[in-house]
Every structure is written in C-alpha cells, then in structure tokens.
Amino acid sequence: MTDLELATAADVRLMQTLAQRVTATRPELINADASYGELAWIWGKGHAAQGAHWPRKLWFAGKAGADGGEPVAWAWAQLPRQVKLSDGSVKDITGAYLAYQIDPGHAELVDEVIAWYDHVAVGLERTVLPSAGDTYALERWAAHGYTSDPSELGDHGSWTQLNERDLTDLEEPVLADGFRFLTADEAGPEAAVRAHVDAWHTSAYSVEAYESVRATAGYRGDLHLLVRAPDGTMACSAIMWLDEVNRTAEFEPVGTHPAYRRRGLARALLLQGMHLARAAGATHMTVACLGAPGYPAARGLYYSLGFRPFTRDTPLIKPATAPVVTPATARDSAPAPDRDSGPER
C-alpha cells in the first residue's frame, strides 16, 4: 500500500462500517464528513470528477479487509484541484482538507493519521474538522501544530453542527394545493439532479455524479424525496440515508429552489421524509447544518421541527510550509483535489 492510493467505493463501504460502530457506542465522536450517509454522498457526488485527488489510508485491527480484519481508522485527504461548477465557472482549491474517523478504542492512532496527512499534504495549507467532543484528538492535533482556523470563527464560517431528534410524535406534512411529493424512483434521474442543482446553483452535481450516488451503499430511491410544483419545477429535495444497524436515518443533502423558499415546502418535505424513514425502520433522525451565526435559516427550520444540536466541528488549520523537494515529496505534493467551500445542505 502506498500513501497515495485513491478512495474507492469499496473503501467507502469499509468507512461506513466504522461509522456504524462509532454511532452505536460514541456518536458524539462522529467527525464531519464521516457519518454513514455523508460518506456515501460526498464520494458519490464527487469521485468521478475529483477522485484522482482523493488519497486515503485505512488502518485495520488484525489483517486487512479481505482477510477478515475490521477498519479501526481511516484518513481521506482532498488535495488541490480545479472544480468545474454548473454555472460554468471554475473553482481553484489550493489547500488540503482531511476527513477522518478513528475507533474510540484505538484513539492513539490519531498521531498516525496526523503524520500521514502531513506527509501527503506537505507544503500545503492543511485544514481538518475534528469533533468538538473528541478532547484527546484535539490535544494531539494541537501538539502537531494545528490551531483554530481564524477564518472559520466569524459569522460565516463553514463548520457544521449535527442535530438530532427521535421519530415519535411526528406532525403530518401539509403541502399547498398543486404541490406533490415524489420519490426519486418516480421522478427519474434528470429531475433529481435538477432539483439539487437549482437549490445549489454553483454545484458541480451532474447525472453522472447521481449515478455514482445511486451505486453507494445505503442509497435508496424510495428514501430520496422531492416536491414538484404545479408548473413541474422540482421545488425541493432531500436524500435520507438509513443506517439499518443503528435504526437511524440522516438527511443529506436538503435543498430548496430559490423561487420556492419561505412557502413551508422544506418543512413539509422533512416531515414527509421522517414519516418515510420511520416506516423504513428508523427510530432516530439526524441532520447537519452550517453552525455559524450568519446561517440561521436552516438551523431555525430544523429546531422548529424538534431537532436539537448534538455535536459540532472544531475547525483547525496548519499553515503552508515550503517543502524540502525530493523525488518522493515531488510526487506526494503534486497538485491534488480541492475541498468544496462547505457541504451542500
């Protein structure tokens, strides 16, 4: 195994098994981008266009995957790259970002994760989002020179908070006349993609990316919900990811067309989604949102539906340093993928 092996669908499935174990025992330690549904969504929507810039490493208890060992840690770097957006613009990502997760029983592996990240992102500005509840990891990141990211501490930081509620006492959804719920199975791929792109107008999402999302473990077209307006526009949409092991479901992403906001459609969509998730076997629901003060709309909607904050990210940064250029580091620090400015929620 080299330090620049790229993340594959099989890797993501192994990462999801670790997410399920951590969710069962220490859910407050689930890192940003490391939940069961988030892993599938991020990999599916981006790997075709950006996966060549996504090196990863996995740590196993016992022998590796195929030989029966189970993953106890993983690290997934997103390196500098260009991202072509749906409005025709191109976004240059110049720094590195790390998603990672460690089994609480193997917390000492955080030092190996940090060392691997510093190696593959040598010379680059490096960011990471540990869980605020993981005090040991935060101490170790600080010991390796990572500090609070000042650009993330203001009103418009892109860190996220996780919100949760149980699925008892659900209100019934109410749609205005002429609006209708559809699943992605009913609406079809083009409608599902258009709903997302209209909500996130600079998204790089595409039908090709959606096909990859559909192929990930946990995706179900009957748990991908849309609202169709009387004129045929897909006014809002959300995917629900059902973790059958823990009987929990996650909304990711959630989005509403700008022309249809503030009409109660997202509220109705989320209520209908929770009813569908409960019918599929879930007893608990989560949804993430941007947590900075400058983004109150989604947070207020979720609170009005009974969600309450559970945990949050701690944005850390390590400044770029000039690398010592050797043949090995020249390969390792070649331009790699960029990270989107924030989750499409």
Results as ranks from 00 to 15, higher is better:
W241C: 02
P319K: 03
E344L: 13
E244L: 11
L29P: 01
A48C: 05
E5H: 11
R312M: 09
L223P: 00
A96P: 01
A266Q: 02
A282L: 10
K318C: 09
E139A: 15
T160C: 15
A10T: 11
H201T: 14
V72W: 00
D231R: 04
P230C: 11
G157M: 03
Y100S: 11
L242H: 06
V110P: 02
P327K: 04
V325D: 11
G178L: 07
A322Y: 03
E186P: 00
P293M: 01
D338Q: 10
G68I: 02
A121C: 12
A143V: 05
D67W: 09
T135I: 14
A132M: 08
P130F: 12
L14Y: 08
V72I: 14
H275M: 05
K84A: 15
D11E: 07
H196C: 04
I317Q: 07
V120I: 14
G157S: 06
R165N: 09
T248N: 09
R339W: 15
D243K: 08
A176E: 13
G294N: 05
A217V: 13
A204S: 15
H106N: 10
I102R: 02
G281L: 06
R262F: 06
L18A: 14
D166Q: 05
E171A: 15
V193S: 03
N163D: 08
A184T: 00
N31D: 10
Y302W: 12
H144Q: 12
L153C: 09
T25N: 08
Q161H: 10
T17Q: 14
K63M: 08
L124H: 11
G255P: 04
I42W: 14
V12A: 04
P173I: 09
A322N: 05
V193T: 06
G68H: 08
E70T: 13
G306Y: 08
V174R: 13
P309C: 02
P319V: 02
V12T: 10
A7W: 02
H53D: 12
A195L: 00
L124G: 09
V174N: 06
R26T: 14
C236E: 06
G306T: 05
T135C: 03
L124Y: 14
G300A: 10
L305K: 01
Y210N: 03
A292Y: 05
G68S: 06
R299W: 01
D313F: 08
D177N: 10
V207A: 11
R194A: 15
A24C: 08
R331A: 15
A137R: 04
L270T: 04
S203R: 00
R214Q: 12
D67Y: 09
R81E: 15
P323W: 11
W59E: 07
A204V: 09
E244P: 03
A132G: 12
D3L: 14
D149E: 09
T183G: 00
G133D: 13
G281W: 06
G300R: 12
R278I: 05
R180F: 02
H53E: 07
S212G: 13
T216Q: 15
H284K: 13
T2M: 10
H47N: 15
T94I: 12
L271V: 13
A192G: 04
P323V: 12
H201D: 14
D222A: 03
L269Q: 07
A187I: 01
P293N: 04
D166I: 06
S131C: 05
